[in-house]
């Protein structure tokens, strides 16, 4: 298994209240899996994604990525593990505003173990692949939303991670760009990668192999009957 969430739970404790964001959620993703987690706002989708990404330790349950529990690692080792094993894509793109497209794509290389030449070749390949070559010297502020998200995707894939975690990646995109981004995610899964997509956008469902519904922090799994190669 590439990703295993075993009965993970998370409760946010405020000054006077406690919010049970996720309760006993279990998800397993193997190589080539593309799973969409759907649910209404506040149902705990993003919390699941952060726990799966080694960014938010669950109160209970286990997270295993490629058989490794990231929370069992020291902080710097966990950061390094994350850099090598996981790629992130966010709704707000979270590109570094003062780095151009090429530099943003290269930025995960700071934490990786590959040689600078290899990292640069990989970045140029991804920029070409995501049709950003003509924009590689531009700052994020000079890009369209679709270009920004494609840049974010290229950055997420720089270190050739096993697992790609996407949090509402199409939330700020038009139809055309949504299809393009979802197509890239599907392509990544088909090439042997694993995608966990958190979204409330129904347009993502046909691209995913499986959809997990999350309601009040709990899951109901089912295969996506509409999933087919033609959907991508």
């Amino acid at each position: 298994m590439v990703l295993q969430l075993e009965q993970v739970s998370k409760t946010y404790v405020g000054h006077s209240t406690a919010v049970h964001a996720v309760s006993d959620v279990s998800i397993e993703l193997g190589a080539g899996d593309f799973v969409a987690v759907q649910g209404p706002s506040g149902c705990g989708k993003s919390t699941v994604l952060l726990m799966a990404g080694g960014l938010l330790q669950p109160d209970s349950g286990n997270v295993l990525i490629g058989g490794t529990n990231p929370y069992g690692l020291p902080p710097d080792a966990r950061a390094s593990f994350r850099s090598i094993s996981i790629g992130f894509v966010f709704q707000q793109f979270h590109l570094v505003p003062y780095l151009n497209v090429l530099e943003n794509v290269l930025s995960p290389g700071l934490a990786g173990t590959n040689s600078p030449e290899h990292v640069r070749q990989r970045a140029e390949h991804l920029i070409e692949h995501f049709r950003l070559a003509h924009r590689q010297d531009h700052l994020p502020g000079e890009l369209s939303s679709g270009e920004r998200q494609r840049t974010a995707l290229a950055r997420a894939l720089l270190n050739s991670p096993q697992l790609l975690l996407a949090d509402e990646p199409t939330g700020n995109l038009d139809r055309e760009n949504t299809d393009a981004v979802l197509g890239y995610l599907k392509e990544f899964a088909e090439s042997g990668g694993t995608v966990l997509l958190v979204t409330h956008d129904d347009r993502a469902v046909p691209f995913a192999k499986r959809t997990v519904h999350l309601r009040d922090g709990r899951t109901t799994n089912h295969m996506n009957p509409g999933f087919s190669a033609a959907s991508g």
Partner: peptide, 16 residues
């Protein structure tokens, strides 16, 4: 802060 969060997420260590 957001930029730092993203850099942390993509793997930069606290020392970096």
């Amino acid at each position: 802060s957001q930029e730092i969060g993203v850099l942390r997420a993509i793997g930069l260590s606290a020392r970096q």
